[in-house]
Simulated assay, not measured.
Amino acid sequence: MQFINMTTHRVLVTGASGLLGRAILKEFKASSSWEALGLAFSRARADLKKVDLTDRKAVNDVVNEFKPDVIIHSAAERSVDVIEKDPEGTKRINLDATQFLCEAADAINAWVLFISTDYVFDGKNPPYKVTDEPNPLNLYGKGKVEGEKLTLKVNSGYGVLRVPVLYGEIEKLSESAVTVLFSKVKDTSTKSLIDAKQQRFPTLVDDIAYVIRELSEKKLQDPEIKGIFHWSNNEVYTKYDMAVTMAKAFGISTEHIAPDMSSSSTANRPDNSQLDCSRIENLGINKRTKFSEAIVDVLKPYL
Rank of each mutant, 00 (worst) to 15 (best):
H9C: 03
L12N: 12
L12V: 03
V13N: 00
T14F: 04
T14S: 11
A16E: 11
F28K: 00
S31I: 11
S31T: 08
S33T: 13
A36F: 02
R43I: 07
D47E: 13
K50I: 05
V51G: 09
T54G: 07
I71Y: 01
S79F: 13
V80F: 15
V80A: 15
D81E: 15
K85Q: 12
E88K: 08
K91E: 13
T98I: 02
L101F: 02
A105I: 03
D106L: 14
F114W: 04
F114T: 00
Y119Q: 02
N125P: 04
P127Y: 03
Y128R: 08
T131M: 12
T131R: 10
D132K: 00
P134T: 09
L137D: 10
L137I: 09
N138M: 04
V145M: 01
K149V: 14
T151F: 01
T151L: 00
V154R: 07
S156M: 12
Y158M: 04
V160S: 12
V165D: 11
L166I: 14
Y167L: 06
E169H: 14
E171N: 13
E171M: 13
L173Y: 11
F182S: 06
S183G: 13
K184M: 10
T188S: 10
S189H: 10
T190Q: 01
D195T: 11
K197H: 08
F201M: 14
F201T: 05
P202L: 11
P202F: 08
L204E: 14
Y210R: 09
K226Y: 00
F229S: 06
M242A: 04
A243N: 00
V244L: 09
K248V: 04
F250Q: 03
G251S: 07
S253Y: 10
S253K: 09
P259F: 05
P259S: 00
M261H: 14
N268R: 10
R269E: 02
P270C: 06
P270Y: 09
L275R: 03
L275D: 03
R279E: 14
L283I: 03
G284M: 05
I285E: 11
N286E: 10
K290S: 08
E293H: 09
A294G: 15
